[in-house]
Computed example of a mutant assay.
Amino acid sequence: MLTQTAATLEALLLLHIGTLRTLSTEELLFKPSAAKWSKLQIIGHLADSAQNNIRRFIVAQYEENPFIVYNQDKWVEAVGYQGLPPADVIDLWFLLNKQIVQILRRINSDAYHRVCTTGEPHTLEWLAADYVKHLKYHLHQVLDLEPFPYP
């Protein structure tokens, strides 16, 4: 049920926003290698994911099987998260996810099984659950929590 997924997402936001805001700039900007993202870039990636999923959750309610994909590496590079104020990136992530909570709560249950293609066709219900799993996975990376099994 999307209302339960929305509640889970909201709980995750409230649980972790305080800790994210206490991470030092040095910790957020550290890149383990040139090919790896920093913690700030991971948070930025989560903001990009939120933006793309907002579009999916809305468009799939009124279009038949929209095709909505994005290149995560190109988005992180194009936005330039590594050069932005960390507080702004964290706030962006938080506010976009608050919007997702609202959208998920407003989706009529008749639309739960509407489909959006993201490489493969998936229902809105599946996409929402997968979105939360993806968010948990990356939050565990950023906050150095026990590894979260994803997928």
Results as ranks from 00 to 15, higher is better:
T3W: 06
T5I: 15
A6E: 06
A6P: 07
A7L: 12
L9N: 13
L9S: 14
A11D: 13
L12R: 14
L13C: 13
L13I: 15
L14T: 14
L14S: 14
L15A: 15
L15M: 13
H16E: 11
T19Y: 10
L20V: 11
L20F: 11
R21A: 12
K31G: 12
K31W: 04
A34C: 10
K36T: 11
W37A: 05
Q41N: 13
I43E: 03
I43F: 01
G44W: 01
G44D: 05
H45N: 11
H45E: 09
H45L: 06
A47S: 15
D48M: 11
Q51N: 15
Q51H: 13
I54S: 11
I54L: 14
R56Y: 06
I58K: 10
V59I: 11
A60W: 03
A60D: 05
Q61H: 06
Q61K: 07
E63A: 06
N65E: 09
N65C: 07
N65L: 03
F67S: 01
I68L: 12
V69A: 06
V69K: 10
Y70C: 06
Y70H: 11
N71G: 00
N71H: 07
N71M: 00
N71Q: 09
Q72F: 01
Q72W: 00
Q72E: 10
D73F: 00
D73P: 01
K74Y: 00
E77M: 00
V79P: 03
G80C: 03
Y81K: 04
P85H: 07
P86G: 04
A87V: 09
A87W: 01
A87F: 02
A87I: 08
A87H: 04
I90E: 02
L92S: 12
L92Y: 00
L92N: 08
W93G: 08
F94Y: 13
L96G: 08
N97F: 02
K98R: 13
K98W: 04
Q99R: 14
Q102P: 02
I103Q: 10
L104T: 05
R105N: 14
S109G: 01
S109M: 03
A111I: 04
H113A: 04
H113C: 02
H113P: 02
R114A: 02
V115E: 10
V115F: 07
C116Y: 01
T118M: 07
G119Q: 13
P121M: 06
T123L: 03
E125V: 04
